[in-house]
């Protein structure tokens, strides 16, 4: 139970970083922390105490298969990491472009759209 709680703590830390920091690169870092908190959460869902990696090898019997951790969340996390990579690349590229246009990373100076 504690580990789930810690995941939520990590998630809120990321959210805090996203909301409170003005520097857009720090916002990106906050978002990545949130992303990884959720990945961690998914991994913990599939974890079993004393479990082993779900890789079938020669000469395994069904008792050993019982000890496998759930492989599905791991597949989900892999997909989610790939998606996160794509989003991160886009975000970093956008940060660089914003720096080119505005000469600053400070969101409060960049922000012009309102109303």
């Amino acid at each position: 139970m504690t580990v789930y709680f810690l995941c939520v703590v990590l998630l809120t830390m990321g959210l805090y970083c996203l909301v409170a920091k003005k520097n857009i690169v720090k916002k990106v870092i906050g978002l990545v922390i949130m992303d990884y908190a959720v990945n961690l959460y998914l991994i913990i869902i599939g974890y079993k105490k004393g479990g082993v990696a779900p890789v079938v090898e020669r000469g395994m019997n069904s008792a050993m298969l019982e000890r496998f951790v759930d492989p599905l969340p791991q597949a989900l996390v892999l997909t989610s990491i790939v998606i996160g990579l794509g989003v991160l690349a886009l975000m970093v590229a956008m940060c660089i472009r914003i720096y080119e246009r505005h000469g600053t990373f400070d969101m409060s100076q960049i922000s012009k759209l309102r109303g």
Binding site: A89, V92, A93, I96, R97, Y99, E100, G103
Partner: peptide, 20 residues
């Protein structure tokens, strides 16, 4: 490609910063 694009980006924005 992502890495090379970001590397090219960095060089260009660095130059524009110095010019600025």
């Amino acid at each position: 490609l992502v890495f090379s694009a970001l590397a090219v980006f960095r060089r260009r924005s660095f130059r524009s910063m110095i010019e600025g």
